[in-house]
């Protein structure tokens, strides 16, 4: 690599440095906008004891769900995990811990983590099990709870296009959690559909500036659809 060129040529290189018991933040919503190849590489590496921060945990046999097959995940921090039988089984066995987090709070935890903000107040979850044990405070007569931000050892991202410098553009609703996740990793890896040369992306259209990105890899994606519904 030279200068700002962040392109790596193998998944092994892309995920180099991942170790047992690390925290990995993953972009994606359901199976939409997930870094399929990076997840597959994590399975190949057999890294154990992982804490995964992601809105969902994939489905049986695809997405983050494949990391459950060899019990690589110790803890999931997610808003919704209902699509996965293996997940359910490991949760009931006590082999897997889950920290359910409201979806907006999860996005904000990543955003704040990446922006150097250690915690923030939100009305979401006040008076519910989510607020239990958390500091609360009133502002303008309304109660809020204090939520701590999240950072990860790694962040794994799926983008549509990135230039060699790591500037990224997402496509449609495959954007979702990816931009926040990208800011919150000590090492951020972006798997993309298309790598382009610096200058090919319009600077004002870039969603994730390259400063947040450490490695870029050309991916190949199945882009599986979780719930195909077509107009009658």
């Amino acid at each position: 690599m030279a200068g700002f060129d962040k392109v790596v040529n193998s998944y092994a290189e892309a995920m180099a440095g991942l170790e047992d018991n690390m925290t990995v933040i993953a972009g994606g919503f359901g199976l939409c906008g997930i870094p399929e190849g990076l997840i597959a590489q994590m399975k190949l590496m057999q890294t154990k004891g992982l804490t995964i921060v992601s809105n969902n945990c994939g489905v049986d046999g695809f997405g983050l769900g494949i990391l459950l097959e060899d019990k690589q995940i110790k803890k999931m921090i997610s808003s919704y995990v209902g699509e996965n039988a293996l997940f359910e089984q490991q949760l009931l066995n006590g082999e897997l811990e889950v920290e359910l987090t409201p979806q907006g709070t999860l996005a904000e935890k990543m955003r704040a983590g990446g922006a150097g903000i250690p915690a923030f107040y939100t009305a979401t979850g006040y008076g519910t099990p989510v607020g239990e044990g958390k500091e609360s405070r009133e502002f303008n007569g309304r109660p809020y709870i204090l939520e701590e931000s999240i950072t990860g050892d790694f962040a794994i991202i799926k983008a549509y296009k990135a230039d060699r410098y790591g500037n990224c553009i997402y496509r449609h609703t495959a954007q979702n959690f990816n931009p926040m996740a990208a800011t919150a990793g000590k090492i951020t890896i972006v798997e993309v559909e298309h790598i382009v040369e610096p200058g090919e992306l319009e600077p004002s259209q870039i969603h994730t500036p390259g400063i947040y990105v450490d490695r870029v890899i050309q991916g190949s994606f199945e882009k599986r659809i979780e719930r195909k519904v077509v107009a009658k």
Binding site: S79, Y80, V81, G82, L100, P102, G104, T105, T128
Partner: peptide, 10 residues
């Protein structure tokens, strides 16, 4: 089984 609150609390 608790599947999660998704965005409902927000």
């Amino acid at each position: 089984l608790i599947k999660g609150m998704g965005g409902a609390m927000d």
